[in-house]
Design a protein around this nucleic acid. Structure first.
Length: 580
RNA sequence: GGGCCCAUAGCUCAGCUGGAUAGAGCAGCCGACUUCUAAUCGGCAGGUCGAGGGUUCGAAUCCUUCUGGGCCCGCCA
């Protein structure tokens, strides 16, 4: 159930009624009519802008529409009062029974409360992480992993058919570098003294890979030229790195549906096919690009290349798909990769990239738009940098020196739940400060514990009630006399619950999982507030002497815990049953 | 030189895609543990929403110019 959608439908019905009465002309556009929670609770439970939106096209004053609209709405049993206010808002106050029904609905639906069918029939591909398989994941990847995973879960919760995908960039020259680095470790494993020149990966995470290679091939590659060992070690090293990365992702609780190998596109004609599809639309040509403005690279010279006319689809310049020696640029297999996704039948593509790939967005969108004639939307979410600090001092990272903070380090220090929640309490396009020591304190600074504590408090109430001999199973709570939840403070909390389905839809539509985290914090705050009011007003406590009254009060608390558990589930965080 | 993103309380950030008197946490001040666990709550104080212009019933939100910060800019992926 989505109460806001219900009341909006009711409002639209009332507008139709006004049309029949001749108050409003027929054929008005009601798309902009909204029913929302008002910012100020004093304005009631919901507010609609209908009269203001319709005033101009109807050629009437807002109040002349609002008054009869209010009368019609007030006739519905769900509406307690409907009042005209301000410039023409209609403030709606709902009957207490409506809030009680929300609590009952949560208890019936369980953690599935808030699921919607808005994405029914839509297949979405969410591509995220996709780190180069040259080493373990670091903090930067962590944010993309958490964001992509929560977004995927959110879309699933709102009815989409979601595929979580990781593209392995195993076709480029950085894999040669990886292979050479592993080769050095392999020689080391054979007792050789080796130097690590610039341009190889010095990290000691490759030591066991070198040892494993020795285990597998013995001395076969020792003192052999590169063309003997490079190709097999590429495969061996890539497999080893992907095993490492999968293990890292698992620490975070991230599991992909598809690992797509970029290399698998080469030598199969699939890149050529994708390019041909563009050529058929007249979007591929030979040409020379203008030199970039401003600072010019030392060795810049004009060269003719094969170009994709991405400017036709909103890019700033056309983009090369072949290097001057005829080999593909990275863009070409990437076009083929997205072509492949489209051919797999996805209706919507989402890519989660790091901010350093910002320059890539326009050309990728252009390519997908060109390949599908604009049929399949591609949304690209950029996650900004994570500034990792400890006691306010930045933890510097240098991949060359091999001194980077890995995802595994972060999980080791603060745990997966904290990492996930903290990284989701920020919009993806805002930079994120992640202070390890602060998050470690488990202080009230930390929103994770705040939300988990609210859940734990409810669990504690359930335990206490059971000890007192009151049956508080969900099935029993469902039948409680919820009419006893008649205090405004209780109804305010129920109203917060009623917002959940609407919030899920907004978050899913905008691809912004951080909204879930903020909502949960808000909901937890509502529970803590009601809890503390029980200090002075015993009738607001969840545990009451009379079992029936107790069950009604506990039903509300339980409903809050269910929504918290469901919301944390989307974020991939465990609810806590006790805080010890 | 160009493109993308960002700018909201002293600090860290929300702000439901244009709604009413712009919100929360931290820091500061005052108050609440004989309780359903105080990892909590109530209150006070704190703002030219970076600056200017525009669009309209109405702008933190949309358009535009500028300022400041981050990321990126043909043969790395």
């Amino acid at each position: 159930m989505n109460l806001f959608a219900d009341i909006r439908a009711l409002t639209l019905d009332a507008i139709d009624g006004l049309v029949r009465d001749g108050v409003l002309p027929a054929g008005l556009d009601t798309a902009n009519v909204t029913v929302e929670p008002p910012r100020d609770a004093a304005h009631g439970d919901m507010a609609t802008n209908a009269a203001m939106v319709l005033a101009k096209p109807a050629g009437k004053k807002p109040r002349d529409i609002a008054e009869p609209l209010a009368a019609r709405l007030a006739a519905d049993p769900r509406i307690a009062t409907a009042e005209v206010a301000g410039p023409g808002f209609l403030n709606i106050r709902l009957a207490p029974a409506v809030w009680q029904e929300v609590v009952a609905a949560v208890l019936v639906a369980g953690t599935g409360f808030g699921r919607s069918e808005m994405g029914a029939g839509s297949r979405v591909n969410v591509e995220y992480v996709s780190a180069n398989p040259t080493g373990p994941l670091h903090v930067g990847h962590t944010r993309g992993a958490v964001f992509g995973d929560a977004l995927a879960a959110l879309l699933e919760f709102s009815g989409h058919d979601v595929t979580r995908e990781y593209v392995i960039n195993d076709g480029g020259s950085q894999i040669d570098t990886l292979a050479r680095s592993v080769y050095l470790r392999y020689l080391e494993a054979h007792g050789r003294e080796v130097a690590f020149p610039d341009g190889v990966y010095p990290g000691d995470y490759l030591v066991p890979v070198g040892a494993a290679l020795k285990e597998e091939v013995g001395a076969d590659y020792v003192d052999q030229p590169e063309d003997v060992w490079l190709a097999p070690i590429r495969d061996f090293a890539t497999d080893a790195m992907m095993a490492l990365i999968r293990a890292d992702l698992l620490r975070l609780g991230v599991e992909m549906d598809v690992f797509f190998s970029e290399k698998s596109l080469y030598g199969t004609g699939r890149i050529e096919a994708a390019i041909e599809a563009l050529r058929a639309k007249g979007l591929i040509y030979r040409g020379t690009l203008e030199p970039p403005k401003g600072k010019l690279p030392e060795d810049w010279e004009a060269r003719e290349q094969t170009l994709f006319k991405s400017t036709e689809y909103g890019d700033d310049v056309d983009r090369p798909i072949q290097k001057s020696d005829g080999s593909w640029t990275y863009f070409a297999p990437d076009i083929a990769y997205h072509y492949d996704k489209v051919e797999r039948g996805f209706d919507q593509l989402i890519n989660v990239f790091g901010a350093d790939h910002g320059g890539y967005v326009k050309r990728m969108k252009a390519a997908v738009a060109a390949l599908t004639d604009g049929r399949v939307p591609l949304d690209i979410k950029l996650t900004q940098l994570v500034r990792l600090t400890r006691d306010g001092a930045e933890l510097k990272m240098s991949k060359r020196a091999g001194t980077f903070v890995t995802l595994a380090d972060v999980i080791e220090m603060v745990g997966a739940d904290v990492t996930r929640f903290v990284m989701l309490t920020r919009k993806n396009d805002a930079p994120l400060d992640f202070d390890v020591s602060k998050v470690l304190e488990q202080s009230k600074d930390n929103p994770v514990y705040y939300v988990q504590y609210a859940h734990a408090r409810v669990m504690s109430v359930l335990r206490k009630a059971a000890e007192a001999g009151t049956d508080v199973a969900d099935a029993r709570l469902r039948e409680a006399d919820l009419g006893q939840l008649d205090h405004p403070a209780e109804q305010a909390l129920a109203a917060k619950l009623a917002e959940w389905p609407r919030l899920v839809e907004i978050a899913a539509r905008t691809h912004e999982p951080h909204r879930i985290a903020f909502y949960l914090y808000d909901l937890a705050s509502g529970l803590h507030a009601l809890w503390n009011r029980g200090h002075d007003e015993p009738n607001l406590r969840f545990l009451q002497d009379d079992p029936d009254t107790s069950r009604a009060k506990i039903a509300l608390a339980r409903a809050v815990s269910i929504v918290i558990a469901g919301g944390l589930g989307i974020l991939g965080v465990e609810p806590a049953n006790e805080m010890r």
